[in-house]
C-alpha cells in the first residue's frame, strides 16, 4: 500500500557543478538505505512547495548510506533546493522506475551517450560499470554539452579521460577559445568510434530532440534495437503509476520506465 509520505532525509554535502547545477549528497534519516539501481529516480519533497522528480546520479552501493542528486535550478522546487545547505532536511520518496537493466549487460561492450543533463542519470551507470569493470568489455562514453561551461562533473570527466578503463569522447555545440576538443553536435562523435555491433549495449540520455539522431547513428553501426536503451523524461508526479502525467501510450513511465529499449520505445508512438 502506498501513501504520499516522504522519508525524511538530510543534505550532507552540496557542490556547485555549473552556473545552474548543483550536486547534493543526501542521507536518509533513521539508517535507511535507498537501494536503487542506475537510472532510477526519486521524488524530492519540500513541504510548502511540492515535489519534483530527480534522477539519482550516484551508483548503487551496499555500504554507503548516502546518494547524490544533480539538480538544475529551473522551477520552484529546484530553485528552493539550491537555497538549501548541509544539514538541511528534505523529504524523499522512491526510488522509482525500473532503472537500467544491469543484469543484461555483463560481458558486453557498453556505449554510453550523454547529452546535457543526461549525464546526471548516466553517471550512476558509468560509476557502477567502472566499479564492476571486470564484468564488461569496452566502455565507451560520448558526452555532449552546449558550451564548455555547461559540462557537468568536469573533474570526473578529466579522470575518465585519463583512465584506460573507459574511452571518453566529449564535444560542445559552441566552443570558447580555451576549448581544445571536438566541436559540434554529439552525433559527430560517432565518426571517431568503432564498435562491435553484436557485442554492444547502448545507453542514451539527453534532451528529447537528441534521441532520434543518436539512435539513427547507433542503428547505422548495426546495433540491435533491443540493445539500445533510452532513459526518457516525462512529468513524473506520483511515481506509482496512478496520476497519469507520465503516461506514454499504454505505459506509465514512472513504473515501466524511465528506461526503455528502443525496441519497446519504437512501438510507442508517443515515446520519441
Amino acid at each position: 500500500m502506498f501513501n504520499f509520505l516522504p522519508m525524511p532525509a538530510t543534505i550532507t554535502d552540496v557542490r556547485q557543478l555549473t552556473d545552474r547545477e548543483r550536486l547534493f549528497t543526501i542521507r536518509l534519516d533513521n539508517e535507511r538505505i535507498l537501494r536503487h539501481r542506475p537510472c532510477q529516480f526519486v521524488l524530492i519533497s519540500l513541504f510548502g512547495i511540492g515535489e519534483a522528480p530527480i534522477s539519482i546520479s550516484s551508483p548503487p552501493v551496499d555500504s554507503g548510506k548516502t546518494f547524490e542528486l544533480c539538480i538544475r535550478s529551473m522551477g520552484n522546487l529546484t530553485n528552493a533546493m539550491h537555497k538549501l545547505s548541509v544539514n538541511d532536511k528534505i523529504g524523499i520518496r522512491g526510488p522509482y522506475g525500473n532503472g537500467f537493466p544491469i543484469e543484461k549487460i555483463g560481458g558486453k561492450d557498453i556505449l554510453i551517450v550523454a547529452g546535457g543533463l543526461g549525464l546526471a542519470p548516466l553517471r550512476s551507470l558509468i560509476k557502477y560499470v567502472l566499479q564492476e569493470r571486470g564484468r564488461y568489455r569496452r566502455v565507451i562514453l560520448l558526452i555532449g554539452a552546449k558550451r564548455p561551461g555547461d559540462i557537468l562533473f568536469r573533474e570526473e570527466i578529466s579522470e575518465w579521460e585519463r583512465d584506460p578503463a573507459i574511452e571518453t569522447h566529449i564535444t560542445v555545440d559552441a566552443a570558447d577559445p580555451s576549448w581544445t576538443r571536438h566541436v559540434g553536435v554529439i552525433t559527430g562523435l560517432f565518426r571517431h568510434i568503432d564498435i562491435d555491433p553484436l557485442k554492444t549495449i547502448a545507453a542514451i540520455v539527453g534532451p528529447p530532440v537528441m534521441y532520434r539522431f543518436v539512435i539513427r547513428e547507433i542503428l547505422a553501426k548495426g546495433v540491435f534495437e533491443g540493445n539500445i536503451y533510452l532513459d526518457l523524461e516525462r512529468r513524473m508526479r506520483c511515481g506509482v503509476g496512478k496520476c497519469g502525467h507520465c503516461q506514454i501510450n499504454g505505459i506509465y513511465l514512472c513504473q515501466n520506465g524511465p528506461v526503455l529499449s528502443y525496441l519497446e520505445a519504437r512501438k510507442l508512438q508517443e515515446a520519441l
Partner: peptide, 10 residues
C-alpha cells in the same frame, strides 16, 4: 478517470 495533481497549501 483518476488522474490527479498534487500541491501544497500553507
Amino acid at each position: 478517470c483518476y488522474c490527479f495533481d498534487v500541491s501544497d497549501e500553507m
